[in-house]
Design a protein around this nucleic acid. Sequence first.
DNA 1: TCTGGGGTCCTAGGACCC
DNA 2: TCTGGGGTCCTAGGACCC
Length: 418
Amino acid sequence: MIGLIDGNNFYVSCERIFNLTLENRPVAVLSNNDGCVISRSNEFKALNIPMGTPYFQLKPLLGKYGLILKSSNYELYGDISRRMIAVLNEFTPDVEQYSIDEAFIHLKLAAGAGYFEYGQQIRHTILKWVGIPCGVGFARSKTLAKIANHIAKKQPCGVFVMPDNSRAVLDNLPVSEVWGVGRRLAPKLETLGLRSAWQLASADETFLRKKFNVTLAKTARELRGESVIEHEDPAELSQSISCSRSFGRPVVDLSDLAEAVAHYISRAAVKLRKKGQRASGVNVYFQYYPEYEPVKREGGFTGFTVTFERPTSATAEIIMAVSPKLKGIFIDGRRYKKAGVVFFGLESGNKRQMDLFADKIRDAKADRLAQAVDQINRRYGQGTLFNLAEGITKPWAMKRDLLTPCYTTNWEQILKVM
DNA sequence: TCTGGGGTCCTAGGACCC
DNA sequence: TCTGGGGTCCTAGGACCC
């Protein structure tokens, strides 16, 4: 059986762990830069304010409905997520984290043991040990487990086990609610007469493959209870690693732009080292605002690619390879909105391409230095040690006016009980 | 007027997910 | 005026090869 455990309104629930006054109130968490709504409490949902509503549209409603908004704090949510996974690992070794707030578990209970009761145990333990309410769904495939989880969340017990004959459930489910059917595919399927999940499940495989693609054909098989979506191996290496942010306000100085890029490189390089990978190159890109004066010009994207002499994960080395190129692309007077870096051509550290001219001693030193820096930042909080190229005041940093402290990952911000 | 066939690799773009 | 960030997979089409 495959179980899907998913934190309810995850970011809001994380905020509620440390702030009891948020209970029973319409609470929402905003995207980076306090852009738009990305997580809502049930009370907030009841006001019919949709996901993705921009913050500025909500400002007039704050007082009227007593809305409480929070900036997103991924350092906090990431740590709570790790705790949830740790609890799941107490139950079964085969835990596959799918996103920050959900995980699949693969297990076979002894004959006689019930999945429903098992799901309730998991739910109660996570609620008690971590403080996050979850939904738990069990089924024979991931796609069905997703549906089971969806149903579970609507029930007071929070657990649902998909029956072996799932027709009754799938008949009542619009095809647009199926995992893997998005806003483009759904209308297409509907015009072809495939309106319910059951109709998709019963559709002819070669028809789906020809008219759409193999992914949708797989989804249909999954809906029939066949488990065909593979188990992701956590040791599997990433194809690309990136970091990008919109600026808190338009950036017009080359020096600010360079700092931001250095900072994003540094953040992405940490991810790289965490996975033990090295990048062969990096793509640096910028998004800029349109202009209206003196002439109207469209906004757009610009950027460049740097290929390294050999794969690396050393922050300073990458910054030095990228920085000289910034001047060539920077345009005076242009108002930059966002910057990003994408590392590509990733290889694992131990399978590194040998380089005849590599300075092995220097490399080993650089690796040890990076490890030490990462360790200190993990222990004392992000940004304890940083490269000076990242800047100190960071005037371009994103807007997070409604931020909760990092209660569990930074000693300076730990919760005080008076 | 008539102008092959088959294969690989890469990239851009589209679709999906949370 | 102000609407996030980080991924994956698939396909079509172009470039290139013999």
